[in-house]
Design a protein around this nucleic acid. Sequence first.
DNA 1: TTTGTTGCAAAACGTTTGCAGCCTC
DNA 2: GAGGCTGCAAACGTTTTGCAACAAA
Lengths: 158, 158
Amino acid sequence: MLVTLKTMKEEVSFESVKEIFTEYLIKQKHRKTPERYAILERINAFDGHFNAEVLYNLMQKDYRVSLATVYNTLELLLNCKLIIKHQINGQYAQYEKMFGNNTHNHLICTNCGKVKEFSDKQLRISIQTRKFAHFYSSHYSLYLYGLCNKCKALLKNS
Amino acid sequence: MLVTLKTMKEEVSFESVKEIFTEYLIKQKHRKTPERYAILERINAFDGHFNAEVLYNLMQKDYRVSLATVYNTLELLLNCKLIIKHQINGQYAQYEKMFGNNTHNHLICTNCGKVKEFSDKQLRISIQTRKFAHFYSSHYSLYLYGLCNKCKALLKNS
DNA sequence: TTTGTTGCAAAACGTTTGCAGCCTC
DNA sequence: GAGGCTGCAAACGTTTTGCAACAAA
């Protein structure tokens, strides 16, 4: 049985997240390896955006896995929607957990590249309730480009 | 003088687009090379998403430029907001002209990867008029993930 | 026992960079 | 004429792949 993901960060227990992952692995006839759960655990403890390399380096401390396995597991977690993938800069993909967190609105400074998240219930509802004739949406990402306070001030003097 | 970009595709003349680019090049003390204008011209004639490689290949037919110059020029066009950059799949960046077109809402099928654009005036206004305390937004991209009709039907039988 | 998964290293891929020659300004 | 820009090819950094060993089912 799928557990409904809640708005508040505290409301999603790691047990229910693991359960979702397990159900997905079984359904897809994938194996329940300790590496996969160790990676999920590390992601659970992490707040904000991370990339494969960062996650790989963090993993060295508790449960050592290869970079290839990190990529493999991120793909699985993406498929069962436990994480979301962002490609904000051209260099590398960034990931973020989807559980206990549904603010996927980003402010991106086109000058310094800084990324800040914000939540807006009204906006979220407008986007999530939009219906389409031939498309069934499950989640979304919104990226707003512009200038942060600091860069706006800097550019004014040029 | 900057020309206001309109909603309808037909309303933006290529002359005014070139003018915006020229103003930008002068202001930034960059050179007005024939390669740069040839690339802008090719983009103007193209509808939908394209990547650097596709643009490079198209260029071979009329005005031959190197891939490095294509990347260089895309960067400039990005800076003066004549084009927008999308990084939907992990492989390569996709670009799209911003002039004569302001639907940057995308429906992305998480199964087959197909991307479809849609416009929604109400949604656009909600997003564009959102004010922030320390951020000055200029444009946005919205990505809605889900299943297209075809993939939804396919997955029902598994 | 079967076969999906792992770690490792090499390969692949889009993008960036260094450099000599060219062409705006 | 000075120096930004070009084309070319090599380099870069992230992600993917091939393969032998391993372990979940």
